[in-house]
Simulated assay, not measured.
Amino acid sequence: MRPESESELSEMLRAARGPLRIVGGGTRSIGCVDGDVLETGGLSGVTLYEPGALTLVAGAGTPLEEIEAVVAAEGQGLAFEPRDLRAVLRSEGVSTIGGVFAANASGPRRVVAGAARDFALGVRFVDGSGEIIKNGGRVMKNVTGYDLVKLLCGSWGTLGVLTEVSLKVLPAPKTRAGVLINGLDVAEAVPVMSAGLGSPYEVTGAAHAPVGAGGAPVTMLRVEGFEAQVAYRAAEVARLIGRGAVIEDDPAKIAADWRWVRDAKAVAGAEGDLWRISVRPSDAPSVVAALDAKAMLLDWGGGLIWARVAAGHDVRAALSVPGHATCLRGAAAAFHPAKFGVGRLEAGLRDKFDPRGVLNPGLMA
């Protein structure tokens, strides 16, 4: 099924007599949901873009690349830096803006700019009963009552099918610099990343790969902004952390390096299961030591760990610290089980928005 309008989608959901698998471009699917495929690509197009107001409104099925091209033409961008996981998930298709917000897909800049949900101003969606719902608008302070905008972001289509998203864009950075430290292990790299992120020099990315693109361990910090500021701040970050830090100022190399981080290319091999693990950065070294991973990448200063492990290896059994682990690819692909209290809240919300249980049933349960 591929609705071409919000009203057509509403009719389809009202008429549904069994489970539906909700997809945008099919690039971020986790696990296998049984049911008829309902694809939102027909709900496409940028309906409003006001560069001066930093606001854009688009249909949920609009390709992400189209939106990025539209805002880039005005020197703007999506500050939350959504990831492209097609390589690591071995998926095809075209990422959509609805899929980005349904998955709350956020990249390396999340540590300073915030997540995708922090840039969502308003949503329109159709719930499991076929009711059309609107929440939020086109400015930040416009929500009264329950903030459904934030609720829908990261709900993976289990509460409603997004039809339209209003979002905030920001000016794109004029200049970037990278601060690179080679040869550190994870226990050494995490304090270095924390020092950079905790400094007054506005580090906008902090990642570590035990096996970098060149084959050796590399710790990467990023500074962005105006040219004169970036040169000064990068030099101060390098001086602060020491350890033989070098500054990379080639724009093409920096862009390629951080796309590699953003899209988790370090773990893109075909062998094994892929896990996404969120922990406190200070706990990352002990988690990494317990994983026995085939490939790994740390982002968000160590708060996000991408790990490719042997097929069937239960990563959660090694997670002896607070956090959660989601298997993105493999026979056990599923979200981290919710704690009892949170699980009851989630089940209650699903019962209200999808009482018949037709929207991606079991995906997040």
Rank of each mutant, 00 (worst) to 15 (best):
K168T: 02
L184V: 07
M140E: 07
S155E: 11
M193I: 02
A187G: 14
V161E: 11
L151W: 00
K141Q: 14
A187D: 12
G198H: 05
R138V: 13
S155P: 07
K174A: 10
G183Q: 03
T144R: 12
G154M: 01
G196P: 03
A189D: 01
K150Y: 02
N182P: 03
A172C: 06
N182K: 14
E188R: 13
Y201H: 15
V169A: 00
V161H: 09
L197H: 00
V192I: 15
V161G: 12
G183M: 03
A189C: 02
A172F: 06
Y201V: 15
G137H: 08
P200Y: 11
A177G: 04
M140F: 07
V192R: 10
P191R: 07
V169C: 00
G196K: 03
V165Q: 12
N142E: 10
A177P: 04
C153E: 07
V149D: 04
A172H: 08
V190W: 03
E188S: 13
G154Y: 02
M193V: 01
L148M: 15
G154W: 01
V139W: 03
W156N: 06
N135K: 08
G196S: 04
P191Q: 09
S199W: 08
K150W: 02
L167F: 13
L148C: 12
A177R: 07
L170N: 02
Y146N: 05
N135G: 08
A189S: 07
L197V: 02
V149H: 00
N135P: 02
M140V: 15
G160S: 07
L148S: 13
P173A: 13
W156Y: 13
A177Y: 06
K168G: 00
L197E: 00
P191K: 10
A195C: 12
L197R: 01
V143R: 12
Y146L: 09
A187V: 07
G196W: 01
V149Q: 01
K141S: 11
L148R: 11
M193K: 02
V165R: 08
G183C: 02
V169I: 01
A172W: 08
I181Y: 06
L167E: 06
G183T: 00
G154H: 00
L180K: 13
G137I: 07
G196F: 04
I181E: 05
T144F: 10
M140A: 15
G196M: 02
K141F: 10
L151P: 02
V186H: 01
V169D: 01
D185G: 11
K150R: 14
G178M: 06
K168D: 00
L180Y: 15
R176K: 14
V143F: 12
S194F: 10
V161I: 15
K150N: 01
G160N: 06
G137Y: 10
V139R: 01
E164L: 11
L197K: 01
P191C: 11
A177E: 04
Y201G: 15
V139L: 04
L152M: 15
L151G: 00
L162W: 04
S166G: 09
V149M: 04
S155Y: 08
G145V: 10
M193Y: 01
V149K: 06
E164T: 13
P200W: 10
R176S: 14
L170M: 09
S194I: 14
P173W: 08
V161N: 09
L184G: 09
V186S: 03
L167Y: 06
V190N: 03
K141R: 14
